[in-house]
């Protein structure tokens, strides 16, 4: 199929950056870098040296190692939480948009309730009652993502349910399950997939914000948000300690957005209709 691919050098830069971050996060254990939690009180806030390529932080921990191990946490939370939202929200939206009626009223009502609940309060409440852990953080962020995915899925399902190919499938004797799985899901999956990558970007930012506030990843585990938070304390002496993780966070989120947009444009067969 000969479609002009909207993949410029920017797309490949973004994809390579995500690739580097993901690979580094996966193989962090075997990389020749110091432990991210080993402190060296006599080498605090040092500039780049051979032993510490990006220098050390205010407790003398290796910044490069913390960035790489931070990628592990930021990425796994950033990917897993939207998976929860995608799975639950996508299914709810698809069913609500297809079956309509009371179920739809129930789902959209529930979504509005979740949206009305302040996310920070929820995060604080969960942290207070269930304790501060990466799993709890992922669950909270995933739960908060459900409404958006539900809305995207429901809106897309409403559009596609009204199309004649659904009526045609029913006329050919398709049951509810087949119409939802074979006719609607492949269509709804496109906007949901694009929204998922956006969700990853947003979740990484929110995780950073929560960790910055001390509600996210518990110390001493490194995450980019935690590092920015810690770097804030020595902003005048060593601005790089906050700037480096912020830069990495910014580039990663930007890359996910870029790749998400491009993939959506590439995989949308309807664009070729023109």
């Amino acid at each position: 199929m000969a479609v002009a691919k909207p993949t410029g050098p920017l797309f490949w830069c973004a994809l390579s950056w995500i690739g580097i971050i993901v690979v580094a996060a996966i193989v962090a254990g075997v990389l020749p870098i110091p432990s991210p939690t080993d402190m060296d009180i006599f080498a605090r806030r040092k500039g780049p040296t051979l032993a510490h390529l990006l220098g050390t932080d205010s407790l003398g921990r290796d910044v490069l190692a913390r960035l790489i191990y931070g990628a592990r946490i930021s990425l796994s939370v950033g990917l897993l939480a939207p998976v929860i939202g995608l799975g639950i929200g996508g299914a709810l939206g698809l069913l609500a948009g297809y079956f309509r009626g009371r179920f739809e009223i129930f789902v959209t009502g529930g979504v509005d309730v979740v949206l009305a609940f302040p996310p920070l309060i929820l995060a604080m409440a969960v942290t207070a009652f269930l304790g501060q852990s990466i799993v709890n953080l992922t669950l909270v962020l995933g739960f908060l993502g459900i409404p958006a995915f539900t809305r995207v899925a429901r809106a897309a399902t409403l559009t596609f349910s009204a199309r004649e190919f659904v009526t045609a499938a029913r006329a050919l004797g398709a049951g509810h399950a087949r119409i939802i799985l074979k006719e609607l899901l492949p269509n709804v999956a496109l906007p949901l997939g694009a929204f998922f990558l956006l969700g990853v970007a947003v979740t990484i930012v929110v995780e950073g914000a929560l960790s910055f506030l001390g509600l996210g990843v518990p110390p001493p585990a490194p995450s980019w948000g935690v590092m920015i938070g810690e770097g804030r304390e020595s902003l005048e002496m060593a601005p790089a300690l906050a700037f480096l993780p912020a830069m990495v966070l910014f580039l990663t989120v930007l890359s996910f957005n870029l790749v998400g947009d491009t993939l959506r444009a590439l995989t949308d067969p309807r664009q070729g209709a023109l």
């Binding site: 045609a168 492949p186 309807r270």
Partner: peptide, 12 residues
């Protein structure tokens, strides 16, 4: 149906 653009599933 009338319009074969909408009576076929665009992504299959």
């Amino acid at each position: 149906f009338q319009d074969p653009m909408t009576s076929l599933n665009p992504v299959l």
